[in-house]
């Protein structure tokens, strides 16, 4: 375990000494819970409509595909007109785009980012790398099947997908959300142990709590 994660005594600027245990203090130990839809259908439909029309993406680029986000943000393809926008922190975002190959090292950060996002949250895999490994199919450090590690709602195929393909993908995810089928966060909570088992299998130096909420 890294030094900064070990339990230790710290002296504050005012000379006051206190103990920190980063693995305990900064995280909530509690595993995620399922939040099934509880209102009557018409209300849930309204919620889903609202959610689908304001997709906020976490600006976290993992592979080559991240470069395709820029034309989407700018006037030529202008994804903002569809209510899609990019946010700087996981807390403000509800869509995690895995934009291409994901090395095990980045997977660790992606998991943390995903777990910090608020429910309801969605994952889209971009490019053939997230689907079956793409051209990194025999690499020693990139995963080949994203849905083993995070609950993926939909994939956008291509290497790399053009911005038009991404716009079509946004429409797909909108339809999924509207239909009330984007239950990724609940899936994740339900199969939490299975996901953790898969994640730990590839992340050899697991040095964070199981749930990074």
């Amino acid at each position: 375990m890294k030094d900064e994660l070990k339990k230790r005594v710290i002296k504050g600027p005012d000379g006051f000494e206190f103990e920190v245990d980063p693995m305990q203090d900064y995280f909530c130990e509690e595993p995620p819970k399922e939040h099934p839809p509880i209102y009557v259908k018409i209300v849930e439909d309204l919620f889903n409509w609202a959610r689908s029309e304001s997709i906020w993406i976490l600006g976290f680029g993992t592979g080559c595909g991240a470069i395709e986000m820029r034309p989407l943000m700018t006037p030529r393809f202008d994804a903002y007109r569809y209510g899609v926008q990019w946010r700087p922190t996981p807390r403000q975002a509800d869509l995690l785009m895995i934009s291409g190959y994901l090395s095990t090292k980045t997977l660790k950060r992606a998991i943390r980012a995903y777990e910090q996002m608020q429910n309801p949250k969605y994952v889209v895999g971009l490019g053939s790398c997230t689907i079956n490994g793409g051209m990194y199919w025999d690499s020693y450090n990139t995963i080949k099947k994203l849905d083993e590690y995070l609950p993926v709602d939909t994939y956008i195929a291509g290497c790399m997908p053009r911005p038009e393909a991404l716009l079509a993908g946004f429409n797909d995810i909108k339809k999924i959300i509207r239909a009330g089928k984007a239950e990724g966060a609940n899936e994740y909570a339900k199969n939490f142990e299975w996901y953790k088992k898969n994640q730990k299998q590839v992340i050899k130096d697991w040095d964070m709590p199981d749930y990074n909420w």
Partner: peptide, 23 residues
């Protein structure tokens, strides 16, 4: 170390990462 040529990346990758069938 992965850049040594006796290291078989394909075998390591197959052993470590889940594979989607059909490729």
């Amino acid at each position: 170390p992965p850049y040594r040529r006796e290291f078989d990346t394909k075998a390591y990758s197959d052993k470590t990462f889940a594979v989607r069938p059909g490729r």
